[in-house]
């Protein structure tokens, strides 16, 4: 009964979000996000039909569409990066470098793990595979959020909503999947509800933030420092060094 309620509530919110987006022309501003949302509606309908008419194929259908959702989800991360850092080319470059470093670290870790345990790919269940992919997404989203916070990148209400909702969804998915995989049969039902509810929470956040279009606050003054980045960096380095010397001198070490 509860899972039915969550399912119907999710469908309703998804349709509502899409309707509002078409009305407010948000679809054209965040195409990947709305494609993701449309795909989930499609997934819900297909899963329902398969479950009703061909239950034997339900598991295959569910996991195939779920895997595609994860892939499109990576597109949302890219869209957040693209839209959020459009006016900040330097910070965008930092983000690209950080994501490349993370990708190399993840690839190296995956390679080492695959060498140590070549059977993992064959033995791992779909849930474990999804968790691994979601963890990767979580790392990328966390890196982006950290960068946005560090450089105080201003957000519009819409983009903040997409990032908050999607990040919340990914974070909760990682946690619930971890507990779900290791849970006993008795507690699996509980974690199953939390697993489904995480998406409902994200939909709630999206509904609040994406109800209507709101322009991102552009930074008022464009700093003319293309020629003097090195000077600014050197000055910051000097000031931080001064701070360190000051603290050491004050404490008396």
């Amino acid at each position: 009964m509860l899972s039915q309620s969550i399912w119907w509530a999710s469908i309703t919110l998804e349709v509502l979000l899409l309707a509002r987006a078409i009305r407010g022309k948000l679809v054209f501003r965040y195409p990947v996000f709305y494609f993701y949302l449309s795909f989930i509606i499609f997934e819900d309908v297909i899963s329902f039909l398969v479950f009703r008419w061909k239950p034997a194929f339900y598991s295959y259908t569910y996991w195939t569409t779920e895997f595609l959702c994860v892939l499109i989800g990576c597109g949302i991360v890219f869209e957040i990066y693209r839209v959020g850092l459009a006016s900040f080319p330097g910070t965008a470059r930092m983000a690209r470098n950080i994501l490349v470093v993370l990708f190399i670290v993840a690839a190296a870790k995956g390679l080492v793990a695959a060498t140590n345990d070549p059977q993992w790919w064959l033995e791992a269940g779909t849930l474990e595979l999804e968790r691994t992919l979601r963890v990767m997404e979580a790392v990328c989203v966390a890196a982006l959020v950290a960068l946005f916070l560090f450089y105080s990148i201003p957000f519009g209400k819409n983009l903040r909503g997409i990032l908050l909702g999607y990040g919340l969804f990914i974070g909760l998915r990682v946690i619930t999947l971890t507990f779900f995989i290791g849970a006993s049969d008795a507690s699996r039902q509980f974690w199953g509800y939390i697993y489904s509810a995480s998406y409902l929470i994200a939909l709630g956040v999206w509904c609040v933030h994406l109800w209507s279009y709101e322009a991102s606050p552009a930074p008022r003054h464009t700093i003319q420092i293309e020629r003097q980045y090195q000077r600014v960096a050197a000055a910051t380095q000097r000031r931080l060094h001064d701070a360190r010397t000051y603290v050491a001198k004050a404490v008396g070490s």
Binding site: S87, G90, T91, S152, I223, I225, E226, V232, A233, T236
Partner: peptide, 11 residues
């Protein structure tokens, strides 16, 4: 520092 450099192209 971050406010002065975040828009810089050559970060």
């Amino acid at each position: 520092h971050t406010e002065a450099t975040r828009q810089s192209h050559d970060l």
